[in-house]
Design a protein around this nucleic acid. Structure first.
Lengths: 200, 200
DNA sequence: CTTTTATAGTTAGCGCCCTAACTATCAGGT
DNA sequence: ACCTGATAGTTAGGGCGCTAACTATAAAAG
């Protein structure tokens, strides 16, 4: 649960009241915003609680999943989309794929290596680079853990019908897209939004 | 942006592929889960970027908003729902309202006090307790900052129609409710879900 | 009145995020 | 060869979550 957020959200009427004082306040927009943050935080919390009970964190799990794509196993290949493209191996690639800084990735790899999930090896061609590999222990962990993880995800969404799920994804994508615009996603010439290329 | 999350989400077809390998994987559930986390993270990021540009963090902002309810000003009263109920004042009340531990709240108050947004005063009746108050600087900051904040929220949701917003809130509430169940929200006899009682 | 228990707040230490500064290596231009 | 600049990775230090252990005070039980 990463996010400090009010435990009880304001009622809609309160937002309406507040809007009288603050002309810029759009009650329904604020309502969506707060509910989105809360739902996201809670969903994260549900998943994270299970992770933590296995002595792993969200960030470390993410790294393991990324590295798994590089493992030469049928299961791993299925998870990768452009399946022939090799997964990330170097800290820089991992950081980029996970959307964190390299310094952060250094820390994650440090603890993963300390706990025996990962091994650093120097690149023979370029002595600046490292190559990160999963250990058998990590692969074993993932094979045991992932089914649990998927069950939890499925249970969390159980109360939504298929059509509701579809609607929800579309609406969330609208917000994501607008957020990208606002954060200035003026990166490469790519469409930039919802062009998924990674594993779970 | 608190959450380490894959920058590119897997395409739905990849989830379908992966489901062949993992019978527990519910593709549409995982899809919603990932999009929810990402949209929440991005919405958080949009808001946080503005906060940070004012040298304040999400957590500190949250504390300021909670304390604002205790200020004897018309604006503050409007934001509070059960408007007559005084807002939280002690670190324990603040921690409870914000859903963090008291240790965390101690740290937040420390930095807020250091930066001149807040003042700690001992309670004359119970010498264990402290009372936290906003400084004029903090009130001034909020009056200047909140309109910006509301504008950003409104802009983020601009692409959603009123009916889409309504739908989205309902669907998010379904997930929140299920998450509460799964996290074991078996606290008091209260209904426990969506019973908002706080300020923005 | 003394002992026990509960409560408020803090401190200490860890994880994971960040930025900024640093080292080592590589590649290009002269 | 020799600077220059780019790149890979790490280190240092800060913020803000957490848990666990601690101090001081208050309240309850004997």
């Amino acid at each position: 649960m990463p996010l400090l957020l009010l435990k009880d959200l304001p009622r809609y009427e309160c937002l309406l009241e507040a809007a009288k004082e603050f002309p810029d306040l759009d009650p329904s927009a604020s309502e969506v915003f707060l509910h989105l943050l809360r739902a996201g935080d809670e969903a994260y919390g549900v998943s994270d609680r299970n992770l933590v009970s296995h002595n792993i964190s969200q960030g470390r799990f993410c790294v393991l999943m990324l590295l798994w794509r590089s493992v030469q196993s049928p299961a791993a290949k299925l998870l990768g989309p452009d399946c022939c493209v090799p997964g990330p191996r170097t800290p820089a690639e991992l950081a980029d794929a996970a959307g964190v800084t390299r310094a952060t990735m250094t820390g994650l790899i440090d603890t993963l290596e300390r706990d025996g999930f990962v091994k650093r090896e120097p690149d023979p061609d370029d002595r600046r680079m490292m190559s990160v590999r999963l250990t058998p222990k990590a692969e074993e962990f993932l094979r045991k853990f992932l089914p649990e993880h998927f069950q939890i995800t499925a249970k969390l969404m159980r109360t939504l019908t298929e059509s509701e799920r579809k609607t929800l994804v579309q609406l969330l994508n609208k917000i994501s897209q607008q957020a990208s615009v606002m954060l200035g996603a003026a990166s490469e010439g790519a469409p930039a939004v919802v062009s998924g290329t990674q594993a779970v």
